[in-house]
Nucleic acid binder design. Structure first.
Lengths: 102, 102
DNA sequence: TTTTAACTTGACATCATTTGTCAAATATAA
DNA sequence: TTATATTTGACAAATGATGTCAAGTTAAAA
């Protein structure tokens, strides 16, 4: 299982793009992108959206990877992680049926 | 489906405890507890642990409620929320099998 | 109704985390 | 070596989380 960072780095190198080039498109310092690719920093949602654009990923797929990874790290240390995810699913359903959509 | 805030308030009133009393046990201002109970602020993990103690909840149950609620709010607006949770489950399994336990 | 106690509200302060910059160090490869 | 790409770590700025406080409101007792 690859991390988002690994996925990004692989694709960037495949496309022959430099850190500098991609970072400039994201409007961040290349140091940050370097760290994102090595899982030393977490990308922002905006970073992910721009990365999907320039690296030709399906935007939703990359966002799913990103958000699920964030959640996984939040709860991975807990014994009851899978219980949390099950309950979260119910709560999401409940919220969706009760939220006023914008 | 009740929120953590609603669960806490119901139990506190049932036990006949005042905001002031419970807040003092949590070592926070009663204003915060008031807001937590009305979902205007999010409790910290430490708040939840102490609440479980003083309000006689099973600690793990309350933590599961708390964490799943946090996650649900993070992703509820997204169309692909349930996809995120499914992928997160896989990622958690992967992390658990690859993490060095402390 | 007046008084008292409980709770709520909002402005603000403090602190931690996140996100970023920069320049020097290191690696890679021409 | 020289040039280019990447990494590193110290630091700064921005954001978000957490808390205090005092005044306002509500509700119920006297």
């Amino acid at each position: 299982m690859k991390t988002v960072g690994q996925i990004i780095r692989a694709k960037r190198e495949n496309l022959g793009l430099l850190l500098r080039q991609v970072a400039s498109y994201l409007d961040i310092d290349q140091a940050i992108l370097s760290k994102i690719e090595r899982n030393e920093r977490k990308p922002t949602k905006d970073n992910i959206i721009k990365l999907a654009e320039i690296l030709e990923f399906d935007k939703e797929d990359l966002l799913v990877q990103y958000m699920s990874e964030k959640i996984a790290y939040e709860i991975a240390e807990e014994d009851y992680a899978s219980k949390v995810l099950k309950v979260a699913e119910q709560k999401v359903k409940y919220l969706k049926s009760n939220l006023i959509k914008n």
